[in-house]
Design a protein around this nucleic acid. Sequence first.
DNA 1: CGCCGTGTTGACTATTCTCAACCCAGGTGG
DNA 2: CCACCTGGGTTGAGAATAGTCAACACGGCG
Lengths: 260, 260
Amino acid sequence: VTHPLIRKLESFTRLREIEREALLDAIGPVQRFGARVDIIPQAPGADSISLIQEGLVCRYKLLPDGRRQILAYFVPGDMCDLPVSILKQMDHGIATLAPASVAAIARERILNLTETYPRIMRALRWATLIEEAVTREWLVNVGQRTAFERLAHLICEMFFRLRAVGLTDGEACELPLTQAELADTLGLSTVHVNRTLQDLRGEGLITLRGKNLIIHDLAALQRAAMFSPNYLHLGSDYDEQPGEGPERSDPLPSRMRPSR
Amino acid sequence: VTHPLIRKLESFTRLREIEREALLDAIGPVQRFGARVDIIPQAPGADSISLIQEGLVCRYKLLPDGRRQILAYFVPGDMCDLPVSILKQMDHGIATLAPASVAAIARERILNLTETYPRIMRALRWATLIEEAVTREWLVNVGQRTAFERLAHLICEMFFRLRAVGLTDGEACELPLTQAELADTLGLSTVHVNRTLQDLRGEGLITLRGKNLIIHDLAALQRAAMFSPNYLHLGSDYDEQPGEGPERSDPLPSRMRPSR
DNA sequence: CGCCGTGTTGACTATTCTCAACCCAGGTGG
DNA sequence: CCACCTGGGTTGAGAATAGTCAACACGGCG
């Protein structure tokens, strides 16, 4: 059982043993949090960043009237840097969704690491590029896709990300999210999420009971979501070919089709 | 008339004369593009980044079935780095909206600059943090806000950004976007953008004819959008106080109010 | 045992989308 | 110089997607 961070980084750059050791060695003290708590105040300060080791954490933003948008999920192996927070008041929050344990890594250690091991530098740079790509994809998701597609897409993404760090079991994984949380990440109401989830189940694509997600037909789910794992840049895709995204060859009942 | 890049960077860090010169000196050859053309193929390769000097450029993503989401606008002074494009196939495109002239800056020059002038390094880091903050804000926009609020918010943002680089004239500026383009950035249909624009006009908040935007009541517009320029980190806000976002004190007809 | 957080449902409403037509201004070519 | 064409912008009518409100079910936990 390798550390999720290593697993993640190795999904795009192979690391040497020394590098792996150096990385693990840099990992500092661990803190545990319950579900649904803000970790900003308690998080290590400006001089270190947080590495999620277990659980599920999110970045979110609140509007003055209470609406909430979840901006990103952090799964084990992800690091959430809080650089903005230091420079001035934070313009968003970081909170756990499921109970989580997060380790601090001193910024200084990182600097050292990246200096001495250029491969680690590259890997970390990649990781942040991917994080940005994910945010962009979310924007596409809420901006362009129907409720059905959005949910399907999010589920695909989480499945692939979790699989990349070894947190899946066949076509199943844990997804410890309430429907209200899904709603806030997809820009939908909870009621609509509920009904859309039923549609997904109705199509025989997934089962989602409590925190347990089972994907019955990954290919179909990807098609329904027009999901192409491309942007996650997983799987040793160093010199990948142009490669098509999945073609939408019309596998779904018309009511779930695009619109605009 | 200082260069927009300098203006932008100086809106958060004061620079010394030498630093300004060094920056300007690093700016390479300029390329001009017409409206609505992709600049990816022609853009300078991996070894340099693009600095927008004039015009309006965007980052966008296409779905296989033709839907398009605009992910970011680049105004003069913004740099669009295309780091992902090199690593592998680009997962999005960069195109002009209005005719634009963009300069190349060699990556190497940047490295030198940041090494010798730490203040430039900080300024550039800030710039990218802000770019990310803007993306997050867009996600909030499409995820949580009504059509009316979205448009108002986007208009506020563009106005502030353009003002930061000296491209406004009082409460007016150029916003060379078609309604279809607005639609693709806000996740709305063009028809709805049209109607919402009429509402904005109807409220006496703005005038938008062709490329010319006039804001008649900036404060009211900000309130309507729940816009707080905070996230843009403009205005020498080095040690700004906590400061509230604008309170929504109910200035608008009920049909434009929140929802979920 | 009762409470609370989640999930589920129904009935109704509202926001937003689609389609299709029409208008207008600017630019082109005859 | 004018007719035409085209790309935006605007409208109307009808439909669909998504939201609200309110009630209820269910399971775990104090």
